[in-house]
Design a binder for these strands. Sequence first.
DNA 1: GATATCTGCAACATCAATGATGCAACTTGG
DNA 2: CCAAGTTGCATCATTGATGTTGCAGATATC
Lengths: 184, 184
Amino acid sequence: MGRPLRADAERSVRAILEAAERVLADNPAASMEQIAEAAGVARTTIHRRFASRQVLIDTLAASAVERLAQAVEDSRPDTAPPLVVLHRATVNVLRVKSAFGFALGQPVEPDSAVAAAWEGITTRCLELLAAARDEGLLDPAVDLDWARRVYYALIGEALHGPESDPDVLATKVVDTLLHGLGPR
Amino acid sequence: MGRPLRADAERSVRAILEAAERVLADNPAASMEQIAEAAGVARTTIHRRFASRQVLIDTLAASAVERLAQAVEDSRPDTAPPLVVLHRATVNVLRVKSAFGFALGQPVEPDSAVAAAWEGITTRCLELLAAARDEGLLDPAVDLDWARRVYYALIGEALHGPESDPDVLATKVVDTLLHGLGPR
DNA sequence: GATATCTGCAACATCAATGATGCAACTTGG
DNA sequence: CCAAGTTGCATCATTGATGTTGCAGATATC
């Protein structure tokens, strides 16, 4: 990092990143021009702050994955009981994912900071699921990796529906994860 | 449709479509050049058969969704008991999806033949799930649309893992759908 | 084997996105 | 207020993908 940015420049960068997420979520092939327009900024300004389109996207992905990690930590996975954490984490993650759908769906290049963050999140998730298993919430013989992938998939799916209240959705996700859709 | 293609031309078209699925699954932004190379064909040949990139992709999507519909029908959803159909359909769909992952993930333009086919598949799926519910396999109060989306998501997720035997995967998918991951 | 069709190749035209630069006008921060 | 930093605008260069065309040689079809 060079010297700190001036206040207005910082505002521009934020506006660009927010616009990028918004525009690219709607159309991943959108041009820099469209992003610039949405950000209320000239296209050249984007190029001044981000050397290339890829850098812009990478930066966006990095900021999104950081928020996601924060969302997970905010659920206090080390102290609260698993079921509570599961619900809280789901709520938090749903919020972040609905706001950063594009950035979080971006392919991560190996050995990057983003990759490390993702790995950290996955580890946290596996720890949580293991705790849930030990608590009797999951089958003792459950395949933890399958459990994690199902959990991720349910979260992703929850965002595609009409319902938008994170609390309701989280309840549905956790309930489905634990009990499926068969009779109680 | 004009006159029927000559045998070699038909072979070329098939090779192009297969290569397109393969290459685009790996990299959705791949160029026509790359597709042509993978098909063992000159780029101009592709343009002779498909007016534009979009037409190529649309054709691919149409052929894929047709196979998917066939996969569903092959499970004899009208005659066999729901649990059997559920398993068979899952196996068949997994096969098709693993071979046409890109094409089936393509956005469908409204009011097209592809859109109609998708709708038919969804209807079939909902009928199946309703039958399963009436049979006592699903909770009587289950949200059928949520059930369908979860089912789709589980199928999609199953394909991302290390396991590749469709039978094993289908068992896992159906089991998870019905009972979740909690203790038995 | 004659004919129609198909293909590869080479060349060309187009087009849109990307990225760079110089400058004048405007903000910010001290 | 002044200096440094920032931005919009106009302009240009580059690049890569897309799509077209003509033709000579290969291949299928009858």
